[in-house]
Design a protein around this nucleic acid. Structure first.
Lengths: 221, 221
DNA sequence: ACCTGAACACCGTTCAAGT
DNA sequence: ACCTGAACACCGTTCAAGT
């Protein structure tokens, strides 16, 4: 017989994050969470309206660690810091990245960050539409960088990642050398990005440089 | 009684794409496809090893329309054309974007496009690692731009999109004006990007500008 | 207020059998 | 070669009932 009040939303979310971290997002089922608490699946429905609500709570919990960049920063550094902050939060629990992206506007810090970015973009000549687009790109790109990190294979269980990587590499290396010399040479780098920090820094650099190019174009007009 | 040979991979994939287009990727189930052919779910397993293989075939079928940019183009225009080509292919069947991204290297045109991009990046001083990263970013960003197009709501059935959009807008407009003036002003643009072509052109511009900034940095070194 | 138990309508997939 | 039929191990979720 289980004690009452053994369940509460915060505890459930914590367990859910642990499951997602170890086995991927698809492994997060209502029944599995319930099992780990030694409780009936339906017990969770007292604390969450449905699975969607649980997923939203997971996203919100991960977003909670989001930090605001220093308010004194100019456009370029602010965008860079905002992206870095977002990515850092997602990297802590990579498989939750899609949930974080979906939940960010429901979170106070997420909204404050968005507002601050929109403010800086407006100050630099971006129209409302352009600003909205840039903020949207930033969130989406942060998510894909994390979800699609080569070598991380977020959708696959950690135990099987090595195998999946090896298979992918073998496929690329089986291509004819005369037709795909660059692809074969780049194969290891495409399957595993090597240094994660470099991978993210490079991605952020490209995005920030792109936004600044747009800013210059607007300033010239 | 059903006629034999009523099923073949090409027909099944065509039906699958139709289902995904009208009801989203989650609506694509083995049972639903079978139903539409008036056939047992297990009939599909003669033509496809499993659902994963069916999804791969769907991705491959959509990638098939990918076109190669003119070989004479320089780095900037080539990257732009490659991105545009990828995005155009995905926009034809937006909900399949993740499948396309996953399948692109299994497709001949996809590999040729990748090889050509890697070649041009190498000619412009990009290291193997940097080239691999840029190509990877391009694919991932193309996918998120399409999957995350504001107003498209790929995961939601077309009939419910209007409602979902209205709810999202209401949430943003309920925020306090003194704290979130920019967010409120940008709300309509964030929920619906208005002109899709502008949205994609702007996203491509930012990415290409970012890559060219990197190219200049490498040329200076 | 908080959880159980049985049931329902779904999944993908196996395995043996039909034609 | 191509498909059926029954079965299995999963899902999320409803609804009524227990304490």
């Amino acid at each position: 017989m289980k004690a009452k009040n053994s369940l509460n939303p915060a505890l459930v979310v914590k367990r859910a994050i642990a499951i997602v971290d170890s086995d991927g997002l698809d492994a997060l089922t209502v029944r599995k969470v319930a099992d780990e608490f030694g409780v009936t699946p339906m017990a969770l429905y007292w604390h969450f309206a449905n699975k969607e609500a649980l997923l939203a709570s997971v996203g919100d919990a991960v977003v909670a660690d989001l930090r605001m960049p220093a308010a004194s920063l100019g456009l370029e550094d602010y965008i860079r810091e905002a992206m870095t902050s977002l990515i850092d939060v997602m990297r802590a629990h990579p498989s939750t990245a899609p949930l974080v992206a979906q939940q960010i506007m429901q979170n106070e810090t997420g909204r404050d960050l968005t507002e601050a970015c929109l403010e800086r973009l407006a100050q630099n000549g971006f129209t409302v539409e352009k600003s909205a687009a840039v903020v949207h790109y930033a969130m989406q790109i942060a998510m894909t960088l994390v979800s699609g990190e080569p070598g991380a294979e977020i959708a696959v269980k950690p135990t099987e990642r090595q195998t999946v990587r090896a298979e992918k590499l073998a496929v690329l290396l089986s291509l004819p050398e005369d037709r795909y010399p660059r692809l074969r040479a780049a194969a290891p780098a495409m399957i595993d990005c090597g240094d994660s920090d470099d991978y993210y820094a490079s991605g952020i650099d490209i995005f920030v440089a792109g936004v600044m190019a747009e800013a210059r174009a607007l300033a010239d007009a």
